[in-house]
């Protein structure tokens, strides 16, 4: 997703658009969870991190300022929250307690690593970009207009100077394609399922 489009998603969220918020969640939540889970090595904490981020985004939607892309913004939030958890000694009662603390320290450093962070952030955004980029040209435009900018079919048709019927057929194609590439993304739009 290019910068302009992700920012549209954010500005829709700032206006209180729940569908845009859900789209953002469905696009990113799973991969953010994978990052948190990998460094925290604990599903429960990872789930809490991801939920906390999105609840914070919704609660403070008026104050969101995204420089660069949304993926980078979400990654930094995930990273900071994970670092907070890894920094504090966790309450773990087990034989391997000491090892867990040592591993937290190791993973704290690993997540702080600039090069590693760069890789994670890049890949996070790339997965979504790739899927959108693979769409044929008009199809991509239609998809971005309706799903990212939140226009309806008629508005999209007017803007792109094509008929509503053409918009519809492009959407069907785009959604089929996105379903293949981003399984999670699709559950956003059950009507096309």
């Amino acid at each position: 997703m290019n910068k302009a489009n992700s920012n549209n998603l954010v500005s829709l969220i700032r206006q209180g658009d729940e569908k845009a918020f859900e789209t953002l969640y469905r696009l990113y939540a799973n991969n953010l969870f994978i990052i948190a889970r990998s460094y925290l090595r604990d599903d429960f904490s990872a789930e809490e991190v991801v939920q906390g981020i999105f609840i914070a985004i919704w609660d403070k939607r008026n104050e969101i300022h995204v420089k660069g892309n949304v993926g980078g913004y979400l990654f930094k939030m995930t990273k900071n929250r994970c670092l907070d958890i890894l920094r504090k000694p966790r309450k773990i009662v087990s034989m391997e307690e000491e090892a867990v603390l040592l591993e937290d320290a190791i993973n704290f450093k690993a997540l702080q690593d600039r090069e590693a962070s760069f890789l994670l952030e890049e890949e996070l955004e790339k997965r979504i970009e790739e899927a959108v980029e693979l769409l044929p040209k008009t199809c991509k435009k239609v998809f971005l207009k309706t799903k990212m900018d939140g226009l309806n079919y008629r508005e999209t048709a007017e803007e792109l100077h094509i008929s509503v019927k053409t918009v519809e057929s492009h959407m069907t194609k785009a959604l089929k394609h996105m379903r293949f590439h981003l399984r999670e993304f699709m559950s956003c739009f059950p009507f096309f399922g």
């Binding site: 990998s38 890789l119 999670e184």
Partner: peptide, 16 residues
């Protein structure tokens, strides 16, 4: 670690 993390991207691990 980062590469391994990235390789798991898009595995549906979270019940969205």
């Amino acid at each position: 670690k980062a590469k391994h993390t990235v390789s798991a991207f898009n595995d549906p691990l979270l019940d969205v």
